[in-house]
Amino acid sequence: MSCDCCGKKEKALEKLMKLEPKKTTELVAFIDSLPLGNDIDANRGCLIETLHRAQTIFGYLPAEVQQLVSERLKITRSEIYGVISFYSYFTDKPIGRHKINVCCGTACFVKGATRIVDEFKSKLGIKEGETTPDKKFFLGVLRCVGACSLAPVVMVDDHVYGKVTPEMVSTILADYQD
C-alpha cells in the first residue's frame, strides 16, 4: 500500500517554464550543449560556466534556477549554493535597476570607503549584495576600479563619482529619481 494522495514535488523546470519560458529555454539549450554525464566530478568542471550563463540570462540566480542546474548537473543544491555564495560575482538576489558599487580597493579603503558603504546601507536599508525592496538600487562593493586618484570611488551603473564623502550619498541617490 502506498500513498497517492500527494504527487511528487513539482520539478524546477516546470516551475521555471511557467515563470520565464524564454529565459528557461535558453538556459536549457545551453546546458544541453554541455558534455554532461553521470560522473559528477566531470560535471563539476561545467558548473561555473553554467552558473555564469544562467546569471547572464536571468540577471541573478534564483532558487529555481539553482535547482534546475542541480538536477541537470547532478550536483547538490547545497554545493551549488556554496559556489554562489563564495564568488562575489554571483548573486541569488534580483539586481536593482541601478547598480551602486562602492570601491573598497586599498586606496579607497584608506580614504574611508567603509564609511561610504555604511552610509549607503543606512540610507537604503539594505546590506551589501542586496537590492532594495522596490528593486531600484543594488548595493555592491568592488575591488580597485582603477581610479585611485579619485578615491574613494563610487560607481552607479556606468557613472563614476570621485572623492565621495558620506554627505554626498543622498545627492548621488537623488540623481536617480526615475
Partner: peptide, 17 residues
C-alpha cells in the same frame, strides 16, 4: 548532500543552501 561549505571569509560556514 545537505551540507556544503558556504559563504567566505568571516561569514564562511557549513550548512544547507
Amino acid at each position: 548532500g545537505v551540507l556544503s561549505g558556504i559563504n567566505r571569509g568571516f561569514e564562511a560556514t557549513v550548512g544547507p543552501e
